[in-house]
Simulated scan of single mutants.
Amino acid sequence: MGAILLQNIKVYAYHGCLVEEKKIGSDYRVDLKIKADLSKSSVSDKLADTVDYVHLNYIIKEEMAIRSKLLEHVAERILNRILKELKLITKVTIKVSKINPPIGGNVEMVTIKRVKKR
């Protein structure tokens, strides 16, 4: 078993319930941890035997570009797509953070975390 982490993926997107968020957009941070059997690739040294983190990043960027009102919704789409497209993965943990959320206070970011297993 093993894990691959993609940390601090920066994305500009238009998620949120407020009209302003739909128009202006905001900065987001995505952190991803996947669990998979990496034993074969550790011996073979072949990309085909592991989880391609370029593919993971592509899924995140593509799904973040689709507007959602809630961070939970975009996270769920990312989780489902990762498990559908990358069969070696047994567990995915994702954190989606909105940087400087418009909540009437000095808040650096708000984060949701979701976990999904095969």
Rank of each mutant, 00 (worst) to 15 (best):
E20R: 06
I112M: 05
G2P: 11
M64H: 00
V110K: 08
N106S: 12
E108Q: 12
I89V: 15
R114C: 13
I89K: 04
L38V: 11
V30F: 09
M1A: 12
E20I: 13
M64T: 04
K95P: 00
L18E: 04
E63M: 11
S44K: 09
G2R: 14
V110S: 14
N106C: 01
I78Q: 10
D52I: 15
D37F: 07
T111R: 14
I59W: 05
E63F: 07
K113E: 15
K95W: 09
K69V: 08
V74I: 11
I60Q: 00
H15D: 02
D37S: 00
N57G: 09
K87A: 05
S97F: 04
S26T: 13
E72N: 04
E62F: 01
N80A: 02
E20V: 11
V51G: 05
D49S: 06
G25S: 09
E85K: 08
L47D: 02
K116A: 07
M1Q: 06
R77G: 12
A75L: 07
L83Q: 01
T93K: 13
H15S: 04
L38M: 09
M1E: 14
V54G: 13
L70R: 00
Y14H: 09
D31A: 03
H55D: 15
S39I: 06
V54A: 10
Y28C: 02
I24C: 04
L86R: 08
N8T: 08
V54T: 13
K10D: 08
G104C: 03
K84G: 04
A75Q: 09
L56V: 03
T93H: 07
G104W: 07
D45A: 08
I34G: 00
K69M: 11
E21N: 01
R77C: 14
Q7N: 14
S42C: 08
